[in-house]
Write a protein that binds this DNA or RNA. Structure first.
Lengths: 350, 350
DNA sequence: GTTAGCAGTCAATTCTACCGAGTGCTAACG
DNA sequence: CGTTAGCACTCGGTAGAATTGACTGCTAAC
């Protein structure tokens, strides 16, 4: 499947003189607001500009030539290109989250309780509610966490459950369904041996399994192999998508909506997309920048979540290229920071 | 929130003479196929009818008067009402799944592996692929399963993980974060006591907790209370939604798409909707029948999943009222049956 | 370099006419 | 009496023409 390549935005030659920048900004702001092409007179009317529409026009042709603006057709206004949005995001916008939303985030993290998964899920709902965009929260894999406890539980003589607890607090179960009947006693003994064998190892470390040919040893061998087989599949990557109905609010064509939803369904794809962008140190990928065709009209904002400095996931927001970058970026940033703090040492209160 | 009331379809006076039935059937079939109002001549041309369009017309006014058909406007053809679809589903359609799909289901269940959750999730994808409708798979709560094992694992002195294994093979974790520092030894002892206390009980049975005022007893008390607190929230209800992008294929208005997606997001709502329909012994709820406003233009097909005769969940398909009932119902039925069998005693092979 | 003015472009809108699918009605037919 | 052919009528959809108006690019003057 088409490999996603993130193009680093070229910083070279990307500087516009003050007036062009002002005009570009006006166009972007207006177009984000109205979704319509914006004309020269609208820009000229913009408060912080004191020239006629004719002047604006000539600047606009320059901006168009340089690739910041585009015209849907002659005699329409201009709309920003991906490059135009990029410049806007990099140079022209700023500001922090509104006080109301600040408060909302604060209250959320003050009151949120429960397991990591629940917190992540609710966080994704929060983000999507705050921004009215679809949100993606990715919890990192526990591939490098160490095993705190392994337990083999007897369901019946042919069904056993391998329950593994990791140092990051995650719990994973696997079914063992041997063809032979194992006695509860054998299962218990196998469980004991597994503990001795695996505790404090990570899934990456290979261990010496017993080579005896009895039921206990068989169970142990099978359990270990199941557990270690997990690794390549990057088991444990958790994805929570919030507000997928927002997709239908924010894009207009039913077909576009369908495509975006189809992408979101492929959770693995979303994870790697978010990861790609994170790897590039980008916080927002606009339109073609993420190189993923079906999302050509989307922008994706990503902010990393870290626990004590260690990368532990990410939060993202998916919207149209004409999304409200300022608010959305602020929201992603604040939430990711709060989330990091929450996991770092939050729940040390009674 | 608006209580959903499922109206039992009245069987009284619902019998149409053979010709009316044929005409109704023709209209439904045609409209499902084309999404357009269907006129008298189209019906008259229908193979199994040997009358003129004029006759069909007079029958149609009767069918309209009786509420089976409706006219979008004068001089348009007729479209079926919910009542019309209902009659169609109850009396006029039949048939089984195509051989290709039969095979697909067979192969799927022959090759599917892994934990219950994964199977359910993949099943929901299967269903949605087979039918091109959005699918819902609901796994029953384990509220009545008994506890096979409880284990308290030490993360650090203030964080412990309570891992509970149930007889239905589900595993649940809860965090314990006491304000006092507990030693590994105390945690282990508490774990031992919890086991003694809870094994073979269900979440519904109350147990006698120790009343001592030491760390071990405190841990035990807190663990038990957390576990039992779960019950009312019907923890463990698992919902898997497959093919949500199909929503955008199958409904035309963006707004409709948004509403349906918004409903699907509310997983609890979906569960209770499915449950309601199941309780009424219905296998399909058409339009207003489920009494849930935002889904007025939807039909929901539900088939129960049982394990050894015990209800264990359900599979559902959500589509427009003009969905392909025959195929969709057949698919839901076959898949639910296979799924039931799969869980009953499938994985007893090596 | 800036601006007013102007001619030109082109999507969107409105209007009109018209088509045709489909109806309801009626009168004739077996 | 049920069935049918025939006919007038309705009304949504479409196609085309005319109009509008929001733009632009250009040019000449400031």
């Amino acid at each position: 499947m088409a490999r996603r390549v993130v193009r680093k935005p070229t910083k070279v030659l990307m500087d516009l003189d003050a007036r062009k920048a002002t005009i570009l900004k006006a166009v972007v702001v207006e177009h984000i607001d109205t979704a319509l092409p914006v004309g020269s007179s609208a820009v000229a009317a913009s408060a912080d500009l004191d020239v006629s529409s004719a002047t604006v026009r000539s600047e606009m042709v320059a901006l168009e030539r340089e690739g910041y603006l585009a015209q849907p057709h002659t005699s329409a206004g201009r709309i920003p290109t991906d490059k135009g949005y990029r410049y806007f995001v990099d140079h022209l916008q700023s500001g922090v989250l509104g006080a109301v939303q600040q408060q909302q985030v604060k209250e959320f993290f003050a009151s949120v309780r429960g397991e990591v998964e629940e917190v992540l899920e609710q966080t994704s709902t929060l983000l999507s509610q705050m921004t009215s965009y679809t949100s993606v929260v990715v919890g990192a894999s526990h591939a490098h966490a160490t095993i705190l406890s392994v337990q083999l539980v007897n369901l019946d003589s042919h069904h056993h459950l391998l329950v593994t607890v990791f140092s990051d607090g995650s719990v994973v179960k696997h079914s063992l369904t041997p063809s032979y009947a194992a006695t509860p006693k054998e299962v218990m003994e196998a469980s004991r041996q597994l503990n001795a064998l695996l505790i404090n190892t990570s899934l990456a470390t290979r261990v010496q399994v017993p080579s005896r040919r009895d039921h206990e040893a068989d169970l142990v061998r099978e359990a270990v192999s199941i557990l270690h087989a997990q690794q390549p599949v990057m088991e444990g990557e958790q994805v929570f998508i919030g507000g997928s109905s927002r997709v239908a609010e924010v894009f207009d064509g039913v077909e576009t909506v369908r495509q975006v939803l189809a992408i979101l369904e492929q959770e693995l794809l979303v994870v790697s997309l978010v990861q790609d962008i994170l790897d590039q140190g980008l916080s927002v990928a606009i339109g073609s920048e993420h190189g993923f065709e079906p999302l050509a009209t989307c922008a994706l904002i990503v902010a990393p979540v870290t626990i004590d400095g260690v990368p532990a996931g990410a939060v993202g927001l998916l919207g149209p290229t004409r999304m409200k970058y300022r608010e959305a970026m602020a929201a992603a940033e604040v939430v990711s920071a709060r989330l990091s703090r929450h996991f770092a040492g939050a729940d040390d209160r009674g």
